[in-house]
Amino acid sequence: MSDQTADVARIKESARSLSKIHREFTGNANPADGLGVEVLGDRSLVETFDDFGDNWKIHRERLTDEIEKLSKILSTAAQTYEEIDHQLAEALRGTDKQATSGKGGAK
């Protein structure tokens, strides 16, 4: 048998954190959107932020897709670990009942 353990609480926490990050990335575009020369002070700075915003949008979309996938994987893993743990506990309880009632088990 394997001596592997899973910290299900930490896995769930990671999934929730990734979901929050996903929401933030999805909701926030270029932070300089709508800011013009009057705010930024220089036309070349406005253009630089615009270029950054276009590039960031492409990378942000890819990143949010990957974050969402990872969050779902972690949520599924935590749920699966809990289901397996429950099934194993039920199987062990059944074995214990059989052993104590004399219907099997080691002699």
Rank of each mutant, 00 (worst) to 15 (best):
I73D: 11
D51T: 13
S14F: 04
R23I: 11
S14H: 05
G104T: 02
N55T: 13
V46P: 09
H59I: 03
I21K: 01
T64V: 13
Y81G: 10
L88M: 14
G102L: 03
L70M: 12
A106M: 07
A78F: 03
E24T: 11
K97A: 15
E24G: 10
G104C: 02
T76L: 08
A78T: 11
R62D: 15
N55G: 08
M1R: 10
D51H: 05
K103F: 06
P31N: 09
D3R: 10
G102S: 10
A32D: 07
K107Y: 00
D33S: 04
R10E: 14
A6G: 08
A78C: 04
F49G: 08
L88H: 06
L74Q: 08
S44P: 00
S71D: 12
G34L: 02
A91F: 01
F52R: 13
V8C: 08
H22E: 15
L18I: 12
H59D: 12
G34F: 07
R23P: 04
K69D: 15
L74D: 08
Q4S: 10
R10M: 14
S19N: 13
A89S: 12
G102P: 03
V8M: 10
H59R: 11
R93A: 13
R60F: 05
I58M: 05
A15L: 03
E82I: 05
K57P: 01
R60S: 02
E38S: 07
A29M: 05
T76P: 07
Q79Y: 02
A89Y: 01
P31T: 04
Y81A: 11
L18Y: 03
R62Q: 15
T26G: 12
K72Y: 00
L88P: 00
D50N: 11
L40T: 10
K69W: 07
F49V: 07
N28V: 11
A78R: 03
I21G: 04
L88W: 09
D96T: 06
L88N: 14
D51L: 09
E66W: 10
H86S: 15
D96L: 07
I58P: 01
A77F: 03
I84C: 09
S17Q: 10
E13N: 11
S75M: 08
D65A: 08
S14N: 11
E13W: 00
G105Q: 00
F52H: 10
G94Q: 04
E13K: 11
D42G: 06
I11R: 06
L63H: 13
S75R: 01
A106P: 05
I67H: 01
Y81L: 05
L40A: 04
R10N: 11
V37S: 09
R23E: 15
G94S: 06
G27W: 02
G41M: 07
K72V: 04
D96F: 04
S75L: 07
L92R: 15
E24Q: 10
G36Q: 02
N30P: 00
T48I: 12
L45I: 14
Q98E: 12
Q87S: 12
F52L: 11
R16Y: 01
K72I: 01
D85V: 12
Q4N: 07
F49N: 11
A29K: 03
T64R: 13
D50F: 01
I67D: 15
H86C: 09
E66H: 15
A106L: 05
Q98D: 07
V39Y: 06
T48F: 02
F25V: 03
D65E: 14
L74I: 14
